[in-house]
Design a protein around this nucleic acid. Structure first.
Length: 280
DNA sequence: AATGGGGCCAACCGCTCCGTG
DNA sequence: GCACGGAGCGGTTGGCCCCAT
């Protein structure tokens, strides 16, 4: 069976919504809800496809939409969540009440990506000149060089690994596509295998515990930890590996730029860099 | 005043996911 | 287990606006 056309249906309108259309959509949804987007435009008397109506409602007309510029805290939250979740904008939007996935996507592409790029290019200025040279991780060549060192089981030669490396059987069970029972599982396993190939030591999935919860603090007199990593995480990082990137207390800076630079460098150094850097 | 370039954002497109029969 | 269709998601784009020249 051929899928029914959506916006290609003859007579359906495309492009910007008029005030009148908005009002029709709002009043219809207020009365009857939006259980069936496909049927909605016909019932409401709109010459739009259901998809277009849904998009208009979700991204613009919903009463709980927050308007106006993003606050610093919101931007930091977006960056933080993007580190954890990637381009899963709907999941990120779910953590930011009143903001839509579309809006987050836009602000990411127009502001935040550039800002992160700037931090990646910017040289580390707080480096201790007496410390070990900073590991370069800007290219996969450097990573493969480190990985290929015989007997090297740590992310930084001569240092204790931050996380235990999985056994070969564990790796195999995660990545062996021949054991997959569906296409989806094949894809998932292939993606995991690809990610492992890029990481120094199978960098574990980042969860909330990585980050400090100071972002949610409403004590304005206390030092604000913009995007700082949690103490739990910091305790896992050998102090020497922090020192030669930046002093640890920059994770608790009131200066947004310094704090961002701190955790971003730390995250890169810990092996979480590949996806971000190749994205730019 | 004209124009061209860049930023921004609403909306579209195409794909995947998921519920249902 | 499979096919189908609606909903949802992420990537992309068209067009408006602003600013510099």
């Amino acid at each position: 069976m051929v899928r029914a056309p959506c916006c290609d249906e003859i007579g359906l309108k495309k492009g910007p919504w008029t005030l009148e259309e908005d009002q029709i959509l709002i009043s219809y949804i207020q009365k009857y809800g939006h259980a069936n987007w496909r049927a909605l435009p016909k019932k409401a008397g709109l010459l739009r496809c259901g998809k277009s109506c849904r998009l208009r409602w979700v991204n613009y007309l919903r009463p709980d939409i927050k308007r106006g510029n993003f606050t610093l805290e919101e931007e930091e939250t977006i960056i933080k969540l993007h580190e954890m979740l990637g381009n899963r904008w709907s999941a990120i939007a779910a953590k930011l009440p009143g903001r839509t996935d579309n809006e987050l996507k836009n602000v990411w592409h127009t502001h935040l990506k550039k800002r992160l790029k700037q931090y990646q290019i910017k040289p580390v200025t707080k480096q201790n000149p007496k410390s070990k040279p900073k590991i370069k991780c800007e290219s996969s060549d450097n990573i493969s060089t480190i990985q290929s060192e015989p007997g090297n089981s740590s992310s930084i030669p001569g240092q204790t690994p931050m996380w235990p490396q999985p056994s070969s059987s564990e790796v195999s069970s995660i990545t062996d596509v021949t054991t997959a029972t569906s296409d989806r599982e094949v894809n998932n396993k292939a993606m995991k295998a690809e990610n492992m190939e890029y990481s120094w030591e199978y960098f574990p999935e980042i969860d909330e515990s990585f980050w400090s919860d100071a972002l949610s603090s409403d004590n304005s007199s206390a030092p604000v930890n913009f995007g700082g990593v949690s103490e739990e995480f910091q305790s896992q990082v050998p102090s020497s590996s922090i020192d030669h990137v930046m002093e640890p207390d920059y994770g608790y800076s009131q200066n947004l730029d310094d704090a961002m630079e701190f955790w971003y460098n730390l995250f890169i150094k810990a092996g979480g860099e590949q996806e971000l850097i190749t994205e730019f």
